[in-house]
């Protein structure tokens, strides 16, 4: 079957989808977005967490056909999502790119003749939570990281100043085997503190 959906603001179409495929499989194997991870495929680890119409869900448990017409944000779109939110364009995760904008969308700027695919040293725009994970040492093997980022970003979207217990509850659906979670807590605290410092700096 064919599935149409919007991913990270861009309309996407997947063809020849087997009816038993998950949204996770479609993202990873058909749409070239392997950022969402396939760690358990039973909703127990959260590595495949995406926003579906703004709501964090395990994409391994969404049948591909159920995503028809829906709006999906994955870790690959997190930076843009956070940027739009900061600009006041979107606070819910449901508002992606407009139709006109989507039509003008390009995967990556075409590389200059003879140049490598990505320009060395080019700064990569990261969402605040992504930067915080790097800075706090919350990334080791990194396999749980994409799902944790999507879940943590959504937590901070609805609760700018979470307590440790709030963070633990919000991330209790995301397993990490490397870090013992301490640095992940640090990262979420860091992102929250930076956002507050920035807000205070604006006098808001």
């Amino acid at each position: 079957m064919r599935v149409n959906l919007t991913v990270n603001g861009r309309p996407q179409q997947a063809d020849d989808v087997w009816e038993g495929e998950s949204l996770l499989y479609v993202l990873r194997e058909r749409l070239g977005l392997p950022g969402s991870k396939n760690a358990c495929e039973q909703g127990e680890c959260g590595s495949c967490t995406v926003r579906l119409d703004g709501v964090p869900v395990c994409s391994c448990l969404v049948a591909a056909g159920q995503a028809e017409g829906r709006d999906v944000v994955t870790v690959e779109g997190l930076a843009v999502h956070a940027e739009q939110r900061a600009a006041g364009a979107c606070g819910t995760g449901t508002c992606g790119t407009g139709l006109d904008e989507a039509r003008r969308w390009q995967a990556l700027p075409p590389p200059a003749e003879g140049a490598p695919a990505a320009q060395p040293g080019q700064p990569v725009a990261l969402a605040p939570i992504q930067q915080a994970f790097i800075d706090a040492g919350a990334v080791q093997c990194g396999f749980c990281t994409p799902g944790l980022l999507v879940a943590a970003d959504e937590l901070l979207e609805r609760n700018a100043d979470p307590s440790d217990a709030d963070i633990r509850e919000a991330l209790s659906g995301n397993l990490c085997r490397c870090t013992g979670y301490e640095k992940i807590l640090d990262a979420v605290r860091l992102a929250a503190a930076r956002a507050q410092a920035a807000t205070a700096g604006q006098g808001a």
Partner: peptide
């Protein structure tokens, strides 16, 4: 770190 937080780091299953 950057590749891992952006989802671009290519694990064997990717």
């Amino acid at each position: 770190g950057t590749l891992k937080v952006t989802g671009e780091f290519a694990y064997a299953s990717d």
